[in-house]
């Protein structure tokens, strides 16, 4: 009996040990699996750019401003979404003096984006000409060597109507197969009023205003008066 019991007892003891080990392993797996899943998701998010602060800002905002907001500027950005190099994109604007221009040169598809921050007030802004929207303005050189001169193709944008102080205007230049000059201009706006009151990583528009102020460029601080036509 003892012999018959002991083996059983031994077997039972072995089974109990194995069962405990199995339960322990199972419990450990239950804890490890979620940890691995969370780690995998974190790695996935990090590698796909979701934890990139620039992308975060582009999608949810709050880190850096994308429009001047309360600051006395108008931001004009140009995006090259063509296969051509934009040899000349003359941004023309009216600020009450002789119409000045800021010409963007050699904006390649790789360079893609640049812009100019204009002191407020800016009464009108366009590409090429404030008087003639159909005048050839944008000089584009395509990879095959062909060149095109494209007009802005629309009336100048006006303060108080299409934009306000603190906004961002985006001119996107893209290829257009139905256009005789192969490219066309789309305009977009980021309303400065939609910008948050503060940013977790600084506000370059506020910084640049303070820099100008400290260096004696006080004219930028002169508040502009815009009369809506």
């Amino acid at each position: 009996m003892r012999y018959s019991t002991n083996p059983v007892s031994n077997v039972n003891h072995a089974n109990a040990t194995a069962g405990k080990a199995a339960r322990s392993l199972h419990a450990e797996r239950r804890h490890v699996r979620p940890t691995c899943a969370v780690a995998a998701i974190a790695v996935l998010l990090a590698t796909t750019g979701c934890l990139n602060p620039n992308l975060v800002n582009a999608t949810s905002g709050g880190l850096y401003p994308v429009a001047p907001g309360d600051e006395p500027f108008l931001l004009v950005r140009v995006i090259n979404d063509t296969s051509a190099t934009l040899e000349e994109v003359p941004i023309v604007y009216d600020n009450g003096f002789a119409p000045p221009a800021f010409t963007i040169r050699n904006l390649s598809p790789g360079g893609r984006e640049t812009g100019v921050l204009l002191n407020w007030p800016v009464f009108q802004v366009a590409i090429g000409s404030l008087a003639d929207p159909m005048s050839p303005a944008i000089l584009a050189v395509f990879p095959d060597g062909s060149t095109n001169l494209a007009p802005f193709g629309r009336a100048p944008l006006r303060a108080g109507i299409e934009y306000e102080r603190g906004d961002t205007i985006i001119f996107r230049i893209s290829e257009n197969n139905v256009s005789p000059v192969a490219i066309s201009v789309s305009a977009g706006l980021i309303d400065g009023d939609t910008e948050p009151a503060s940013y977790s990583r600084g506000n370059p528009f506020e910084t640049v205003r303070l820099i100008l102020q400290e260096n004696g460029f006080v004219d930028v601080l002169t508040p502009g008066q815009i009369t809506t036509p």
Binding site: P53, N54, L55, N57, A58, T59, L63, Y64, P65, V66, L75, R77, I79, D81, E113, R154, L157, E162, Y163, T168, I169, I170, R172, S174, S184, V185, S186, A187, G188, L189, I190, D191, P204, F205
Partner: peptide, 17 residues
């Protein structure tokens, strides 16, 4: 937002300044 009749659907939101 788009201005005028042109679509702005393909205009990226900027990453920052």
């Amino acid at each position: 937002n788009s201005l005028g009749g042109n679509t702005a659907s393909a205009i990226d939101n900027p990453e920052g300044s």
